[in-house]
Amino acid sequence: MTLPPPQLEHLCNVAVTIAAPVEVGHTPAGLRRMIPITGGTVTGPLVNGKVLAGGADFQLILGGGTQAHLDARYVIELADGSRVFVQNTALRVASLENSQRIMNGQPVNPEEIYFRCQPKLEATAPQWAWLSESQFVGTGRRAPDGVYLSFYRVL
């Protein structure tokens, strides 16, 4: 028996500003990088606010440089002052040429990049408890000036 596919509801768009990458180097697991998160904006039909400075995106680069396994952790402050902890795991797959362009801070054609994510949200205020009680998926685009994400609630 096949169950019907879930529907998606647009939660918000997130524009994350970043600082220069910190190159950790090659470990037994792969190439490690840390990208500091310096701020950003959150706009959407269900959630609005800002990304607070102080988070980071921890990256593991595999596949000879073509796969980036991402683990971003940061805090969103909503328009009403409530705060939400975000842990967003993602997979970004690109050609070696595009991967090198991304790592060097150069623009790439987003249509040539597979970038999908699974944000987990932890709300602190009762009116936002549904954020902690829902599953989310998203799409992403890496640009030289930051990361752009669209989050969707899985209904």
Rank of each mutant, 00 (worst) to 15 (best):
G63P: 07
P110V: 04
I37Q: 00
G146Y: 03
Y74I: 05
R92Q: 06
Q87E: 14
P45C: 03
V86S: 07
P107Y: 11
L121Q: 03
T2I: 11
Q118Y: 15
F85L: 15
D57S: 05
G25L: 03
Q135W: 10
I18R: 00
G81I: 03
M103C: 11
F85V: 15
Q67H: 14
R116K: 13
Q127T: 11
P126K: 13
I76H: 01
P144W: 04
A123L: 06
G146Q: 06
S134D: 10
I61W: 00
P21V: 14
N104G: 11
L11T: 00
C12M: 07
Q7R: 15
G25Q: 03
L52W: 02
L70I: 07
F58N: 15
F136G: 00
A143V: 14
L52K: 13
V42P: 01
I102P: 00
G63T: 11
N13Y: 03
E97L: 15
D71Q: 09
R141L: 04
G40K: 04
G44H: 06
G81R: 08
T27K: 12
E133Q: 15
M1T: 10
Y152F: 14
V137M: 09
Y114F: 15
G65P: 02
Q100G: 12
V154F: 06
H26D: 12
N48H: 10
Q67T: 13
V154Q: 07
N13Q: 12
P119G: 06
P126D: 14
D57R: 01
I113D: 02
S150E: 15
M103H: 13
S134P: 04
G49N: 06
S150F: 06
V47G: 00
Q87V: 10
